[in-house]
Design a protein around this nucleic acid. Structure first.
Length: 541
RNA sequence: CACCCUAUCGUCUAGUCCGGUCAGGACACCAGGUUUUCAUCCUGGCAACACGGGUUCGAAUCCCGUUGGGGUGACCA
């Protein structure tokens, strides 16, 4: 039997890392078993679904290298792969359930339902819908009001017991289940109905999804049973937590922005002034009534705070490598056993199995991701890394955007070991394009510039470099080692550190010779004399 | 609050199913080495079986309870 798995996002926003991990595990399983991967868009929430979101999600999946064998735009035996294009099929099966008595029409409005929930607040178990009887007069009245009924599926009379591929035997007691909606008032199926019908018709053999769906599985199994279909196997994967514990969610961004605002002593009024956003929105935001990402981003930008990456897009923008994110994600809730961690795609595919998926939620440790990204960065050949950086700045901007490859190349190989992300690499190189206007830290300045005859020495070095007839790493090295031997008792630090400060503004940079020739001779001479000038001016020492 | 899931270093985890190197690796952190600075790299260190009962010659590993954590409780998926 061919194994078939699916990833079924709803196109209502960006691809979340949790979603990416779900897609990843499904694909790893499929590739390991030589099966087929299906991508299906669950766009039954008409109000929230969008084409842009669909494109963004597909783009991020592709960026991660998570491909699919069947899906929208590629087709396949289960086509179409957008639920909004499969309405007839759902309707058919809803009708079948209606006919067999497994489902029935329910006429309560959302408001009435909410009122019923409200009323059930105090009860031990909370609200559970139970089937209502309607008199002919009531029905007539509802129709006159223009109400459209929903269709509810009758709950299983007995406990739902199934063997989960990850968790083992799971029991959802009947007392926990109630009659759930399978067809909405707008004629669209709910998730429960659509998922079951599609998984069945698309030949899905294994449903691997997050543990938050555990109870939904009980509902889905009920539908399979009522329809007389063989259900697929289910496996529920552990959740991904933020470092604080709790599902990693978009709200984490709002949380960070709020904390930053408070730490800076802001109130809604001052925030409105700062961001130009309406004050009532900010009031709601700060009171945690609103968690808008745009609001969070606006505040963070003004305050210069980094928001935590949550969506795949965020990680892309921060300069992570797809292979690093994939490797990291594969280790969240799964391990190949033993001591293996740094793995390539095929190695991971070969090692993957459901019984090695962990049962407990994993916290998302960005520090480890950063480290892993650095490892993957250094695994790349220099040429490959250069290409990644060029593509990266092309898309997301940076100091190196539009800069000639003949300049980018040497710089990147210089910084290869000094950055964990593409963004950091680009940031690190900023000094090449902008001469320093100030120098620091103070302690280093004191030691390398102001102490003794340092400034005079720097001046001499400038003169020596300026007199070179050939501008190359070798000629610079020859000249400076000679100078070091003759005038600094061979102490390289006396030469390198002042030069670093003069050229970059800080005492930290890659090896000194390549650092020097990263700039033109004229630029080096200019920066050195500017530095000497700066500190000769008595106000700076 | 109810139900369900779950429990090894701060974090990700190996070991648990088939009890007998009481615990391995990695991130982070600390110390040292290499290095003209930084980084890379190398070496070493710190650090965990939630608790309480059982079962057993012997339990991280099996059973029960407690506590902790999380999920769910939509005409969202």
């Amino acid at each position: 039997m061919t194994i078939r798995c699916r990833f079924a996002p709803s196109p209502t926003g960006q691809l979340h890392v949790g979603g990416a991990r779900t897609a990843l595990f499904n694909l790893l399983y499929v590739r390991n078993k030589g099966g087929k991967m299906v991508l299906r868009l669950e766009d039954t929430d008409v109000a929230r679904s969008s084409k842009e979101s669909e494109e963004a999600i597909c783009s991020d999946l592709q960026w991660l290298g998570l491909d699919w064998d069947e899906g929208p735009n590629v087709g396949g035996p289960g086509a179409p792969y957008r639920q909004s294009q499969r309405l007839g099929l759902y309707r058919e099966n809803v009708d079948a359930l209606l006919k067999s008595g497994g489902a029935y029409y329910a006429w309560e409005s959302s408001d009435e339902l909410n009122a019923m929930r409200e009323a059930a607040q105090g009860s031990v178990q909370g609200f559970r819908y139970s089937r209502q009887e309607y008199s002919d007069e009531q029905l007539a009245q509802y129709r006159d009001e223009g109400r459209t009924p929903v269709v509810r599926c009758s709950a299983s009379p007995g406990d739902i017991v199934f063997v989960d591929e990850v968790l083992g035997e799971i029991t959802i007691p009947a007392s926990d289940l109630d009659d759930f909606i399978i067809l909405k008032g707008d004629g669209y199926p709910t998730y429960h109905m659509a998922v079951v019908v599609d998984d069945h018709h698309m030949g899905v053999t294994h449903v691997l999804r997050a543990q938050e769906h555990l109870k939904n599985t009980a509902r889905h199994l009920r539908i399979y049973d009522l329809l007389g279909w063989e259900p697929p196997k289910h496996g529920h994967m552990p959740l991904i937590f933020s470092m604080e514990g709790g599902k990693m969610s978009k709200r984490d961004k709002a949380k960070v922005a709020r904390a930053a605002a408070r730490a800076n002593g802001h109130n809604p009024e001052s925030l409105a002034l700062l961001t130009g956003l309406p004050e009532d929105l900010l009031v709601r935001f700060m009171k945690k009534k609103d968690h808008g990402i745009d609001t969070a981003v606006a505040i963070a930008n003004k305050l210069g705070v980094e928001l935590p990456e949550i969506d795949v897009r965020d990680f892309r923008e921060s300069g992570y490598l797809p292979e690093a994110l994939v490797n990291f994600l594969s280790l969240l809730g799964w391990s190949p056993g033993g001591d293996r961690e740094i793995m390539g795609w095929q190695e991971t595919v070969d090692a993957f199995s459901l019984d090695r998926i962990v049962k407990t939620a994993a916290k998302f440790d960005r520090e480890k991701l950063r480290w892993l990204n650095g490892v993957k960065l250094r695994e790349l050949s220099v040429d490959e890394l250069i290409e990644r950086v060029v593509n990266y700045v092309e898309q997301w901007g940076g100091n190196l955007k539009g800069v000639d490859v003949s300049i980018v190349g040497p710089l990147i190989s210089l910084y290869r070991e000094r950055g964990q992300t593409l963004r950091e690499l680009d940031d690190a190189v900023a000094w090449v394009f902008t001469a320093p206007t100030e120098y620091g830290p103070a302690k280093a300045i004191k030691k390398h510039i102001l102490k003794g005859d340092s400034l005079e020495r720097l001046s001499k070095i400038g003169a020596i470099l300026g007199s070179l007839s050939e501008w190359s790493e070798v000629s610079v090295e020859t000249a400076l080692t000679a100078f070091t031997e003759n005038e600094c008792e061979g102490k390289m630090g006396k030469v390198a550190q002042p030069v670093r400060i003069a050229l970059t503004g800080s005492p930290v940079s890659p090896s000194i010779y390549p650092t020097i020739v990263s700039l033109s001779q004229a630029e080096v001479v200019g920066r050195i004399s500017a530095c000497v000038q700066y500190f000769t001016d008595s106000s700076h020492n």
